[in-house]
Amino acid sequence: MTRTNRIASLLAASALALAATAAGAQEMMKLKIGTEGAYPPFNNLTADGKLEGFDVDIAKALCEEMKAECEFVTQDWDGIIPALQAGKFDAIIASMSITDERKEKVDFTNKYYNTPPAIAVPKDSDIKGVTKEDLAGKAIGVQGSTTHSNYAEATFTDSDVKLYPTADEYKLDIANGRLDAVNDDIIVLQEWLASESGACCKILGTIKPVPEIHGLGAGIAIRKGETELADKFNKAIDAIRANGKYKEINDKYFDFDAFGG
């Protein structure tokens, strides 16, 4: 039966060879950037299956600034940090808020934008405000593993908070009438409300960000301890802020400075 083992190990070895890609080559500065591709206008897929959005453009600008060859990898949100840790890519540029909870698992660069959260409801909704009392007994949709889901679960304890794998899915569900309200970044909500599929709903109001939950804006996540890469990204962020590249991208998407105060 040694044959079993030999064949098994042969199989294992060939499969590893299939999967093995030496991601070590640092001198050429090849970077794999992980993003979600379901969070317009920051990162989403076109009908053609291509990535577009603010995050994507910023990432491209940063790569250009760092003289790095970048390749994008799309990854579902709730697996995005494990995938970074597992080495499936080297940096996450996907509107990830810099929070203490996440800092235990990954390192962050400085923020590259910061916008407040908000709540949207169906147009005919009778919900008056964005407090816990106003939303008691209602079904609230948020994307799971986000600062918004942490906020909703911590704040709206009398409501039925439902977590979705992507923003698109809670949008489908509020349009279908399964949800009474949704909570997300105001930019994301506005983009959606302006589109055809957002015709169902309106912004109810913004939420005052809680620093412990909402963090300090969106940053680029990298594996723990890779300070060299973090420094490079930080320098690149400062550089594109200074040379007008950031403003160019910003103005393509927003009519205000998304970088925040």
Binding site: D78, Q85, E101, K105, S145, Y164, P165
Partner: peptide, 22 residues
């Protein structure tokens, strides 16, 4: 679990998404 029901796998996914603990 993929459609927001918290069965055993859904809860595992939820806990994983909070703790990133395998």
């Amino acid at each position: 679990a993929i459609i927001t029901v918290y069965d055993l796998f859904g809860q595992a996914r939820w806990v994983f998404s909070k703790t990133f603990d395998f």
